[in-house]
Design a protein around this nucleic acid. Sequence first.
DNA 1: TATTGTTATACTCTATAACTATA
DNA 2: TATAGTTATAGAGTATAACAATA
Lengths: 147, 147
Amino acid sequence: MAARFDASAMNKVIGYRLRRAQSYIFQQFDERFARLKLRPAEYSVLELIADNPGCQQGTMAKALGIKRANFVGLIQGLDARGLTARGQQPGDKRANALYLTPAGQATIVEAREIQAEFERHCVELLGGEAERDHLLTLLDRLAPTAD
Amino acid sequence: MAARFDASAMNKVIGYRLRRAQSYIFQQFDERFARLKLRPAEYSVLELIADNPGCQQGTMAKALGIKRANFVGLIQGLDARGLTARGQQPGDKRANALYLTPAGQATIVEAREIQAEFERHCVELLGGEAERDHLLTLLDRLAPTAD
DNA sequence: TATTGTTATACTCTATAACTATA
DNA sequence: TATAGTTATAGAGTATAACAATA
């Protein structure tokens, strides 16, 4: 056997393995969502607006774990594509209320189908729903979901 | 109970949860390694050079899953700090052989201590070594380790 | 005074193309 | 011709500071 590269130490490092796995999954996400021209962050914004219509812009940014300042360009891009719209929040003229446009509604329907198929693929790789649930449980122990 | 933000759909998405967990873990890594001024990628380079002294630069980049072009700045930074050195590969004048300097050796010793403590912390959060092993197994099923 | 959205800015990470010197 | 390292460059993602409008 030839002299091979020894990555055994790094391959036991949880953070390293998380990064590699996340990077790999995002690559596949990009391939599957190329047709809709949606990046992971954009998909998550559409899904969260669909689940929380009229929600406040800053609340959305915080839920996503990104800075308000960095969310501006993201939502502006979706607005420019006609997928989302920002209205006034009743009772606070500063705040933006986020909505999906009809085009956004149609897009999230398609996106959910692609995502569901991707998730089925991942669950199969993991070995079933129980393993998927276990993975999510372990990730939650490492990095608690910020409710 | 007040109207709360509904993130239940996104919180079931494996890729989303992987990204959030990885981001969270890297933040903690940065805090713990602030004293050594090592970012995750820099730590991984030092560890892999320590485990593969004299290895080729391109081999290292590929093992890390980053482009050769992007590895250049990374190794140049470590070189400039006196932690690594690049020598000639016997038999190929094009290739660089990577080594740790004495300062780099001292740094990786300290880094391994910090990393081991961080890993102990993570294993505790996960619920023990068996759960850690299970997490790594699941990540490997999702994104096979490129041997 | 504090908060919401915004702009400007900088730094990191990543991706591609093209160059050089070797092979 | 092909490969190893390099440079230049552009695109994302992310962090902070400061501003206008509003609370």
